[in-house]
Simulated assay, not measured.
Amino acid sequence: MKFKHILGSVAVASATSLLAAMPAVAQDRSDWPKSFTVGTASQGGTYFTYGSGWANLVSKELGVTGGAEVTGGPMQNMALVSMGDAQFGMTTMGPARESIEGNNPIAPGVKLDNACAMFPMYTTPFSVTVLTSSGIKSIKDIPAGAKIGFGPAGSTSDTYFPKMLEELGVKFERRNGGWSDLAGQLQDGLLDVIAFAAGVPVPAVSQLEVQTKINIIEFTPEEQKKIIDTFPVSAHEIPAGAYTSLTAPARSVSMWNFAIANCELPESFVYEAVKVVMGDHDRMMKIHKAARSTVPANWDKNGVLKWHPGAAKWFNENGASIGQDMIFKK
């Protein structure tokens, strides 16, 4: 059964698609899909900007119609890709593990294990943003009952950030929505805090600080340790200058993101798509600064997903040592 039938009312809006000239090298494409989509997340977030960029890049270079889809983020992408309703997608390691184990809230009890690792993207820092006028300068300053926006329902941010703040003793009212919408609500006084989990710089935050003064709230060393001890994240620093408002590094935590492919896709198709993305780092950096981590050396950051055979072939040809036990077999 196609997963879109299961989702029912879950809407995904199609972004710009692109068909370019056929590549110069002839090859057997008889089993390639006629088109593809990349599941991303809400507009205004890093996933959408980054995903739209590499979707269009692959479409242009391979001559296959393709583009990005607005989705609910990593959890929904795991479901869409595993069920075959999106050829490619983007996820984080936490939601990936939960989906494989059958704990994806979109498909409770269903082991979504037909989504394979494609390439490493970047780490997702968890960061708290407030208006300077709020007077909030630390996690402890967040007042009880604060209205906090956690991004789209089912996103990495929505899955983990509420639990993290609860672990730190914050009492709040939970709100969901796209990042651009939540940024607007923060500026209009309808939210007190936005808890972002997205690659830096988050477009919605960059736009927000052009219009008003904001504070990026860092974790204390004690708060950071408590979160690392409890959740599948690692220590991270958001670099100074990532935002105009950030004049010194901000202590944070982060989780790795990977592009994923439906495991049944043809090996040669995924191989060529990975080659396009990983073969020209400068082009990826022009798409989004978070792509500085989209390099072959980070293949080893995946310890959760089986690798697509086409992706594993490219990485092993380029310095990786992905074992057969980590490669998907039909």
Results as ranks from 00 to 15, higher is better:
149 G>K: 05
139 I>P: 08
53 G>I: 14
92 T>H: 15
36 F>V: 03
243 Y>C: 06
38 V>F: 14
313 K>T: 12
155 S>C: 09
126 F>S: 12
83 M>R: 10
138 S>K: 10
115 A>H: 06
162 P>W: 01
65 T>N: 11
48 F>G: 00
153 A>E: 06
137 K>W: 08
12 V>C: 02
133 S>K: 13
23 P>M: 09
62 L>E: 05
8 G>S: 08
4 K>S: 13
81 V>T: 14
73 G>W: 07
293 S>D: 15
5 H>F: 11
64 V>I: 15
28 D>P: 06
86 A>H: 13
36 F>A: 04
50 Y>F: 08
160 Y>H: 14
45 G>M: 02
118 M>L: 15
119 F>K: 00
299 W>H: 10
317 E>V: 01
221 P>A: 04
175 R>S: 14
236 H>D: 14
269 F>Q: 06
141 D>C: 09
295 V>N: 00
49 T>R: 07
168 L>W: 05
210 V>K: 15
270 V>F: 02
111 K>I: 12
128 V>H: 01
318 N>L: 08
149 G>H: 09
187 Q>G: 01
147 K>N: 12
165 L>F: 12
15 A>R: 10
225 K>C: 04
95 P>S: 13
222 E>A: 15
156 T>Q: 11
233 V>R: 08
73 G>M: 03
199 G>F: 11
227 I>F: 13
288 H>E: 07
266 P>T: 07
133 S>V: 02
25 V>L: 12
56 N>R: 12
98 E>I: 02
23 P>Y: 08
324 Q>T: 10
54 W>H: 08
149 G>F: 09
293 S>V: 00
198 A>D: 13
72 G>K: 01
326 M>L: 12
296 P>G: 02
39 G>K: 00
68 A>R: 04
22 M>D: 13
254 S>W: 05
275 K>D: 10
6 I>H: 11
74 P>T: 05
102 G>Y: 07
279 G>R: 06
